[in-house]
């Protein structure tokens, strides 16, 4: 069940716009350790593979994508809210 983005307050924002695979996942994996368990990390990416790749990373690591949004810009910006679970 995804939450509404507006109601979420991220503890940290990772700007991975312009980065290509595998940088968004690697940076997310590092950044998630910088927030407390339960807190939210915001990730901004333009890599078109960032959604399937971060979803796979979330499945493998257990950290939870609680909201996702595609922004209608050029290039498209993908925005993720990820909760650290452990």
């Amino acid at each position: 069940m995804k939450m509404k983005m507006e109601s979420i307050k991220p503890a940290l924002t990772l700007d991975a716009r312009g980065d290509m695979c595998p940088m968004p996942v690697m940076k997310t994996n590092k950044a998630i350790q910088q927030v407390e368990v339960g807190q939210i990390l915001e990730v901004l990416a333009t890599d078109p593979a960032s959604k399937p790749d971060l979803e796979a990373w979330s499945k493998m690591t257990g950290h939870k994508i609680i909201a996702f949004q595609e922004e209608d810009t050029s290039p498209k910006v993908y925005k993720f809210y990820i909760q650290r679970t452990k």
Binding site: C21, P22, M26, D53, A56, W57, M60, T61
Partner: peptide, 12 residues
């Protein structure tokens, strides 16, 4: 290198 670093990110 891409696959190996990503695998580590996934906890492998």
């Amino acid at each position: 290198l891409i696959l190996a670093t990503t695998a580590v990110s996934q906890g492998k």
